[in-house]
């Protein structure tokens, strides 16, 4: 891709962020609590999916363990506030470091093996952490952590009157994660990461230390996922194992990205923009039917996407753009033939 096309793309992203930043200024949006809630979740899940995209999309290593890192981040913030009566910020930092450490420990042996070992190991690790946190008294056990009422504001990252504070928090998270991935995508690390996905031996023959690249990507992905988890805890004012460290949560990281288009910058946003409203509205409408309705909807959508366009929504968008371009070219060609 040439430089000019990339710059045009950046302009699009910039415009989107400005637009999103102005949203709460529209009073119809700001006063509609449910709409604000959906927007916050879209931003949060976009960021979450993007963290997964680093290792799962660009790196091609399917992780089902991201709810563990997400959970560690949520517990970091939660324990800082609930157990130690501090502001969540130091907890967020500790959670990010802990998540990266756990990610490296899990991945180090797995990345040496080829095939699906990594995916299987990450699957197992969710169960292990879920069980462990259920019975671990220090972190609140199965009851989890319930936030006390503290002063609202950025220091405690908590707001009661409106959701505007959380909205800007989610937007900041979104910009941070997407900005990091955008930067990596166009620099050596991003190229090396994709090269390892496309052919590990080939990449190594060109001087790429594939193990180091994958571990770094995994650590970064986990740390950012932990940051998202901390936001989730602060937003819900509670943390418990089933809420943040479940396979359900892990699957959302994977599904949102794959639905939108793995290994593309826009994929996680497209996936979240489609799936999250669906999830929230089905919950609001059919929540009485019991849990899991949203997952049924997810499942059906994924089946359709995988059959129609394995590259996800971003692949569909690309197809449509190509189609329009071809039509335009054909139209141009037609007029030039008609001209004398």
């Amino acid at each position: 891709m040439n430089h000019r096309a990339l710059k045009r793309k950046d302009l699009f992203w910039l415009a989107l962020v400005v637009l999103l930043a102005l949203m709460p200024a529209v009073s119809a949006v700001a006063t509609n609590t449910f709409l604000m809630h959906v927007l916050i979740l879209i931003l949060l899940f976009s960021a979450m999916a993007q963290t997964w995209n680093i290792i799962g999309g660009y790196g091609g290593q399917t992780s089902f363990g991201h709810s563990v890192f997400f959970g560690i981040g949520a517990y970091g913030a939660g324990m800082a506030v609930v157990t130690y009566g501090l502001s969540p910020w130091p907890g967020i930092g500790i959670g990010m470091v802990a998540a990266a450490a756990v990610a490296v420990l899990i991945s180090y042996p797995c990345f040496k093996l080829s095939g699906h070992y990594f995916a299987i190991a990450t699957f197992a690790i969710v169960e292990i952490f879920h069980r462990m946190f259920l019975v671990w008294y220090w972190v609140g056990g199965a009851l989890g952590l319930d936030y006390p009422v503290v002063e609202q504001g950025l220091k405690n990252f908590m707001w009661y009157d409106t959701k505007t504070g959380y909205y800007y928090g989610a937007l900041a998270l979104f910009v941070l994660v997407f900005g990091i991935v955008r930067f990596l995508e166009s620099h050596r690390f991003g190229y090396y990461l994709r090269a390892v996905r496309e052919g590990q031996e080939t990449a190594e023959s060109l001087g790429v230390n594939s193990q180091a690249i994958k571990l770094t990507a995994m650590a970064l992905s986990a740390a950012l996922a932990a940051m998202c988890g901390a936001f989730f805890g602060q937003y819900n004012l509670r943390v418990d194992p089933s809420m943040v460290m479940s396979l359900d949560m892990s699957m959302k990281f994977v599904l949102v990205t794959i639905l939108g288009g793995a290994g593309t910058l826009a994929g996680p946003l497209l996936g979240a923009a489609v799936l999250i409203p669906l999830q929230e509205y089905t919950r609001a409408l059919w929540g009485g039917l019991g849990g899991g309705v949203d997952l049924i909807v997810f499942g059906v959508l994924i089946i359709i996407i995988v059959i129609k366009q394995p590259a996800g929504i971003s692949g569909m968008v690309r197809d449509i753009a190509k189609h329009i371009e071809r039509r335009r070219a054909a139209a141009k060609g037609g007029t030039s033939i008609d001209a004398p």
């Binding site: 891709m1 496309e198 052919g199 031996e201 990449a203 190594e204 023959s205 001087g207 230390n209």
Partner: peptide, 28 residues
């Protein structure tokens, strides 16, 4: 030595059975 270290020292090879990084462009 692992192959990436040998490549970094300046001994680089091609593969008889071609190994393009398929999803990436030729330029990339």
């Amino acid at each position: 030595l692992p192959s990436f270290r040998i490549a970094r020292l300046g001994a680089v090879r091609t593969f008889q059975v071609v190994r393009p990084l398929k999803e990436m462009t030729v330029f990339d």
